[in-house]
Amino acid sequence: MAPLLALIVGAALARLAGLLGVDALDAWQPALRVGLAALFILTGIAHFTPRRRADLIAMVPPRLPRPDLLVTLTGVLELAGAVGLLLPTTARPTAAALAVLMVAMFPANVSAARRRLTLDGRPVTPLLPRTVLQLLFVGTALTISFGP
């Protein structure tokens, strides 16, 4: 739920800043970029914190090799993606790449839900709500990539 809040609060605060005179944020498109960047900063950092890293490694489907390396790689990509979203010249291709990354990582969420894993001591989000969230996140990235 924290990633959803980061997206909503980040976008809303960015849009508010635009309404208050920050020209670079004077539309929903750049505000969405800020919100999605906030989401990826939050999730990217989680890949490197001891408290969450072990849980994320456990989420990687067992058939994939080197789950520790995959978690590191996806964390780096998420953080780099957050930066790319904030740069107007790279925002569109970055958003498209992040949409692909989210689709590629979704099987880990499916695997975690089916194996009833925990994240930070709490059960992972059940599959149906997680799928809805994933569609929202991917849809936001695609809106940034292909929107006005």
Rank of each mutant, 00 (worst) to 15 (best):
R114S: 14
Q29F: 10
P65C: 05
G10D: 04
L142G: 06
G81K: 00
R122Q: 14
I8S: 03
G147K: 08
G35I: 03
V138T: 07
M59N: 09
A80I: 08
L135Y: 00
A27T: 01
T118D: 11
D23C: 13
L127E: 10
P88T: 05
R116E: 12
R92V: 04
R53W: 02
L136W: 01
L16V: 12
A17I: 13
A113N: 13
L39Y: 05
A113E: 10
F146D: 07
A46E: 11
R15S: 11
A2N: 14
A12Q: 10
P62N: 08
P148E: 12
A96M: 07
L7P: 04
I57F: 02
A12N: 12
L16E: 05
A99R: 04
D23V: 15
R92D: 06
R52G: 00
A112L: 07
P88E: 09
A24F: 08
L70T: 09
P62E: 09
L136H: 01
A80Q: 01
R130D: 05
L136R: 01
R92M: 07
S111A: 14
P61S: 06
T49R: 15
A2Y: 09
P107H: 07
I45T: 11
A6C: 15
L4T: 09
L7W: 04
A97H: 04
A104N: 07
G147D: 07
G139V: 01
F137E: 03
R122G: 08
L13E: 07
G139P: 09
G18A: 06
F40L: 15
L136S: 04
R51H: 12
D68N: 15
T94I: 00
P50I: 03
F137S: 05
F48N: 07
V83D: 00
V124M: 07
G84D: 02
I144N: 00
L4M: 11
N109T: 05
V124T: 11
D26W: 06
R115Q: 14
L19H: 10
P88F: 08
L64P: 08
T143P: 06
R114C: 12
D26K: 14
A12D: 09
L39H: 10
R92W: 02
A12I: 08
L69N: 11
T49S: 12
P148G: 13
T140Q: 03
G21T: 05
A14C: 13
A113S: 15
G139F: 00
T72N: 15
R15L: 15
D68Y: 08
G121D: 00
T74K: 01
G18T: 06
A141G: 09
V76S: 01
R52D: 12
T118W: 03
L79I: 09
T140D: 03
T140M: 07
M1F: 14
M1H: 15
T72C: 13
A108R: 01
T131H: 03
R33V: 07
M59W: 06
V71Q: 08
G81L: 00
L77T: 00
L4F: 14
T118P: 00
N109W: 06
V132I: 15
M59K: 06
R15E: 10
M105C: 06
G81R: 04
